[in-house]
């Protein structure tokens, strides 16, 4: 669109679009990519309470992976992440298929399934912390009904607390996954389903053989979005368990924060942040790349 011609005004016109974009792009370059490099440098330094630019190679990474705490965080992320992704997708798909059976009150139900997504993780954590409180919450209530031996104290049990994080996370995100699948279901060509019906396929067969395979893009999007949210989860853990009991619900995100800001191990904290970044990049870069490539002009 840009044509060359003499005249300063004309040249300004040519450069105007780029000038308009430049401040935003510069902000992103500095505050995102510049800062990432900065963090990478810190992760290879001897920084403790304050940044120190003294080269230490991969020392911080070695110390990071020597920390039982970090391994705990990784293990918890694996448990939380896989439960979060699998259950959200299973539940979301199940609800979407149920809702797709010309449900008269769909307009009422859909917003109910989805509203948790509008809440802050801190609010979600606070609510579930209260609900799962063994002394006064759900457990106490059921006991009050007469079932004296009923026990649901996962929130305070180190071996089970991470599952409460998963429960709250699933409660928050599964409605969103449902909506993604529902959009996918609604995008399927009705003539194809009519043809399958005429061909004698049962509803179950239609879903198993035709509909669910056609939802592949929705599956992919759901996995990417959920994996990305799982790695970044921070607020939910802080509000629900504070990372405890002990370090039972430590995640890489909480690990990074406490090592950097409260335990004065900035180099190790930076190293953990870089590992998180690499994890996200491994998921997002191929995905974004293929999405951008596909849209050919």
């Amino acid at each position: 669109m840009a044509t060359t011609s003499p005249g300063a005004l004309r040249r300004l016109q040519d450069w105007l679009p780029r000038l308009v974009l430049a401040p935003s792009f510069a902000l992103v370059l500095v505050f995102v990519y510049g800062f990432i490099v900065w963090t990478a440098v810190l992760s290879m330094s001897t920084s403790r309470i304050l940044p120190v630019y003294k080269w230490a190679g991969f020392d911080a990474y070695e110390r990071l992976f020597a920390q039982p705490n970090w391994w705990m965080a990784l293990k918890n992320l694996a448990i939380f992440g896989s439960l979060y992704i699998i259950v959200c997708i299973a539940l979301g798909l199940f609800l979407a298929i149920l809702l797709d059976q010309r449900i008269r009150i769909e307009g009422v139900l859909r917003p109910i399934y989805l509203y948790p997504m509008a809440l802050s993780f801190v609010v979600t954590g606070t609510a579930w912390k209260w609900f799962l409180n063994p002394g006064m919450g759900f457990q106490n209530t059921v006991r009050g009904w007469g079932w004296e031996s009923f026990t649901f104290d996962w929130l305070v049990r180190p071996d089970m607390a991470i599952y409460t994080v998963a429960i709250a996370g699933i409660w928050q995100a599964s409605g969103f996954v449902m909506a993604m699948f529902l959009a996918g279901l609604r995008g399927i060509d009705s003539e194809m389903l009519k043809a399958a019906t005429v061909d004698g396929a049962s509803t179950f067969t239609i879903y198993r053989r035709i509909v669910i395979p056609l939802l592949r893009p929705a599956f992919l999007s759901a996995v990417i979005v959920l994996a990305h949210m799982a790695i970044k989860s921070y607020d939910l853990v802080i509000a629900l368990t504070g990372g405890g009991p002990g370090n039972a619900t430590e995640l890489p995100s909480t690990f990074m924060y406490s090592y950097t800001f409260t335990r004065s191990q900035m180099a190790v904290g930076s190293a953990s942040a870089m590992i998180m970044l690499m994890g996200i990049a491994a998921i997002m870069v191929p995905y974004l790349y293929s999405e951008l490539r596909e849209e050919k002009r």
């Binding site: 669109m1 840009a2 044509t3 060359t4 016109q13």
Partner: peptide
């Protein structure tokens, strides 16, 4: 029209070249 610039050659309207003109 001037919406896509040519890489070579000339366009004249009424004797005047319009290449490079908005």
């Amino acid at each position: 029209a001037g919406l896509q610039p040519p890489t070579a050659g000339d366009i004249r309207i009424d004797g005047d070249s319009v290449v490079g003109l908005h």
